[in-house]
């Protein structure tokens, strides 16, 4: 039979999924890990997409922050500190610092702000990450689009 752990993971995945402008959870701390955490999926209005992700950092001291996107057709993009999405090689050394703001023990990643994604295919795989002196911690989620007429 199917592994119970897999089924539980699937249910958790569903419970954590939200529709809205900010991914954060009162009941579940969103944290990034070196092997990649699975963050709740999100759904955005494709014509006017705004999305933030807030993650807790504990005692970590982030030096740089990064945001990338993988589209269904294979394009790899990264977000610049000015909010532009530019092609990315896929190499970690080529990641730009987004300078995402830190407050107390959390980082707020601004993914989209009033962006028009109506021409895009979904789901888009988003990665948010920060780099400390010794390691890169990251998390990923799928972004679905709600197409409004």
């Amino acid at each position: 039979m199917l592994k119970l752990t897999n089924i539980i993971a699937s249910l958790l995945f569903w419970l954590l999924s939200i529709t809205g402008a900010t991914i954060s959870s009162a009941s579940e701390k969103l944290e990034l890990v070196t092997w990649g955490s699975v963050l709740p999926n999100a759904t955005i209005d494709t014509k006017r997409a705004s999305l933030n992700v807030q993650v807790e950092i504990g005692d970590d001291v982030p030096l740089k922050t990064h945001i990338t996107a993988h589209t269904p057709t294979g394009n790899m993009l990264q977000r610049t500190n000015l909010g532009y999405w530019v092609p990315w090689s896929g190499k970690l050394d080529d990641l730009m610092n987004t300078f995402s703001p830190k407050s107390s023990n959390a980082i707020n990643f601004k993914i989209f702000k009033d962006d028009d994604l109506s021409e895009e295919l979904f789901p888009i795989k988003i990665m948010v990450a920060y780099r400390t002196v010794t390691e890169l911690k990251f998390g990923v989620f799928d972004l679905a689009g709600r197409r409004t007429p």
Binding site: W35, T68, L92, P123, M127, D142
Partner: peptide
């Protein structure tokens, strides 16, 4: 039964930052 589809990217193995999968 669920409003959320399966993720794009199979398996529960550790993720790679280069691919987010």
């Amino acid at each position: 039964l669920s409003s959320v589809d399966t993720a794009s990217g199979c398996t529960s193995l550790p993720l790679r930052p280069e691919t987010a999968k």
